[in-house]
Each structure stands twice: as structure tokens, then as C-alpha cells.
Design a binder for these strands. Structure first.
Lengths: 194, 194
DNA sequence: CGTCTATTTGAATGTACTCAAAAGCGGTGG
DNA sequence: CCACCGCTTTTGAGTACATTCAAATAGACG
């Protein structure tokens, strides 16, 4: 079941023969995280690309005042890593933590490089993945610069309707870039209007 | 000269044989833009990946109040495109404009896809390019959420020392996400301190 | 149940914005 | 070469969006 999810995910961009599928799957290690478990902490070297099959991860940093800033959520069918650390194999700044009981498939840095050699199509796959993520991040950057907190929240609701219901407000506040206190006030203010 | 610059840029991530170099170069079209010339406007479909060899481009959006927000600068040796529009071939939201007299090499969408077929190594090249850009944008997003305008400006000065001197303040203000008025006040405030 | 965390509410504060106007600067044409 | 024009930068006053700190309330989980 986790295997079919990831194969389906890969199939969105490249076609694999049956043997290639098996080879790819053989490179993955399953992993389980319990709610709140820390998957990667600031200062660690990120050694895996993570594919979530069940549950939800969050990637965030902690600033000098101790406030957390969420970079991304990874519900099922999403990829997650501290990309800077993964690429450079230097210590990173991202925390990755499970928001609930989470199952994932891990592709180690070494195996990923092996994969590029064995099945070059994966260069294409991860190129497309990176390009799409880049588009998303560029848009989010522009949204953060040009929209009010309220508009950013509305956008979040439109883009991630399934997440809105199940995430703690605190996490959404941190994602759109406001304090939980302000987020709460904003919401009660919005209800009055419509 | 422009050709050697782009070959050097590509060589940072993949090795090309002499014939491959020639084939690659044959796919590029040179382009010249005069100062302030618009390269791509909002609503256009982006049909080329642009490599700047001389001068400087800026990519920005205009919000509903008419304010501009700079997504990126492209000095020599940098790539530029409206990636969303380039990937989807739908109309985009980015403006691209020359900040000064600028020379560039253009790789059309069609040719780029041809390039992936002819020389699959380019899948790797553009994967690495996209991944690095993604890391940069992720970091910038987090910086925008966790740092003050002053800290963001200091970071900009560190990261792009060559750009700081030659760009109009207005453009830097727009990149770090403040109004030109506030940027001016911030700078005069900073000088007094040190 | 009791504890721990998330959410709400309030008051005071601050960072950055808006609008308006003056001053500076660079290029262009007479 | 100077004068003018347009654009950028500066300065100031008033304002707004969002934060900080504190405390009360509500939920979730063992």
C-alpha cells in the first residue's frame, strides 16, 4: 500500500518498467514515527529524502527568540527533507517533526545517487519535483510580500483544504507567518464579517 | 565570450564533450535588451529560459495596489525565467525587465526539451539548478518570516555584495520586502549606529 | 481527574506603511 | 555647457497591522 502510493507518485512524471519499479522499491526503507517524534533536528546532517505515506510531518526553523517558523507540511504523498543539508551534507537548520503518528519511506542520499546512475529517468523525476517546489516557494514568497495575513490565510485554505481541518491553529499561524495570538484574533474578526 | 561563460556555467555541474558543447550552443539565440526594456510582461507566456551574460535583469510582480515586488535579480552568469509559465505554458504573473543594457542567451522551451532528449545529462544540470534555487528561496522565505527589515538588508549585502553598489535602492527595498521610504529611513538610522 | 498544551482575550507597544512634499541626481536637448 | 525634466531618495506626520506580554479559558491525553 505505501509502495503503490510512491509508485503512483513517481508515475506522475516518469514511466517505470516493472523491473525498474522493483529496483526502486528495493532502495527504500520504511520508517515509523510517533506523534511529536523528532525526525531531524537543527544541526543534524540530513541523510534521507522522506516520502510520507501516512500521517503528517512538518519542517520548521527556530529563530533567535525561540519562535518557530514552519517551512512546509508533508501529508501523505509528499516529499520532505532539509534540502540544503541533504545536498551539501553539512549540518542544517531545519527541524522535522511528526505532527501525528506517521509512516514514511526513506531514500538515503547514497541510494538516491545510485538511483540516478541505475535509472537516469529519476534525474528527470527529481528535476520536475524541484521545479514544481520552486514555483510554489516563489509564489509563497511573493504572497508573503504582497498580501495581508488575512489574505494569506484565505489562500492557505484554498490550497490546502484538507490540512486546514486537521492542523493545530498554531501550526497554520506559523506557516502563514503570524503569531498564534494574532491568528486567533484574525479568525474571530473574520467570522463576524463572513 | 558569452558562449564561454555559459559553458563554464554548465561545467559547474556536468561535463560536456566538445560535440555536445557545440550542439548545446547551437540551440541558443543571442538577445540584447536596452536599459528598462521589458523582456516579459504579466500575462505573457514565457517561452525561453534566459541566461544573462552582460548587464542585469529583474523579475517582479505588481500587486493590486500597484506596488512592485522583486522576486529575483539576474546579473551575468545567472538564469532567469517565469518558471511557472515556462513549465505550464500558461500565462504568467511575472514581469521581467532589464535594469541596464543587457545581453543574454535564450533557450526556447522546445529546444530545452530537445536538449533533454539529445543530451540527457542536462536533466541533471537543470535538476541541480532547480534544487539550488529551491534552497535559496526556502531560506529567503524563512528569513522574511524571522528577521527584521534591517537584518534582511544586512544579509542581502553579505550575499550579493556586487549588486548592492550598482542597484537603485528602490530595487533592493522591493527585494527585501519594504517600501523605498522605509528603506531610506532604515539606512540613515543604521549609519548613525554603525 | 489532573496536567500539559493550545486557544482566546486584553492592553500596551513597535515596526513598517501611507500620503505628502521637498531635495537630489542623471540624462537629454537646446 | 547649462537648464530642464523625470525619476529616485529623503524627510515628516499620522496611521495600521501585527507583536509582545500577561492572564484566563478551553481541550486533549494519559
Amino acid at each position: 500500500m505505501p509502495n503503490s502510493l510512491i509508485l503512483q507518485n513517481v508515475a506522475r512524471h516518469i514511466h517505470l518498467e516493472a523491473e525498474e519499479q522493483q529496483h526502486f522499491l528495493s532502495m527504500l526503507e520504511p520508517a515509523m514515527y510517533k506523534s511529536r517524534q523528532v525526525v531531524l533536528r537543527e544541526g543534524d546532517i540530513c541523510r534521507h529524502t522522506i516520502f510520507v505515506t501516512e500521517g503528517c510531518l512538518r519542517g520548521f526553523t527556530t529563530d533567535k527568540n525561540g519562535y518557530e517558523h514552519v517551512l512546509s507540511f508533508a501529508p501523505p504523498n509528499w516529499w520532505m527533507a532539509d534540502l540544503y543539508s541533504l545536498i551539501t551534507q553539512k549540518t542544517g537548520t531545519l527541524h522535522i517533526q511528526a505532527l501525528e503518528k506517521t509512516e514514511a519511506l526513506l531514500l538515503s542520499k547514497n541510494r538516491q545517487e545510485q538511483l540516478y546512475r541505475d535509472i537516469p529517468k529519476f534525474e528527470r523525476f527529481f528535476r520536475i519535483l524541484a521545479e514544481n517546489a520552486l514555483v510554489t516557494h516563489q509564489q509563497r514568497l511573493l504572497d508573503n510580500m504582497s498580501l495581508s495575513a488575512e489574505e494569506r490565510f484565505e489562500l492557505f485554505c484554498k490550497k490546502y483544504p484538507t490540512l486546514v481541518g486537521c492542523l493545530p491553529q498554531k501550526q497554520i499561524a506559523s506557516y502563514i507567518g503570524v503569531t498564534p495570538e494574532f491568528f486567533s484574533k484574525m479568525r474571530s474578526g473574520m467570522q463576524k464579517k463572513g
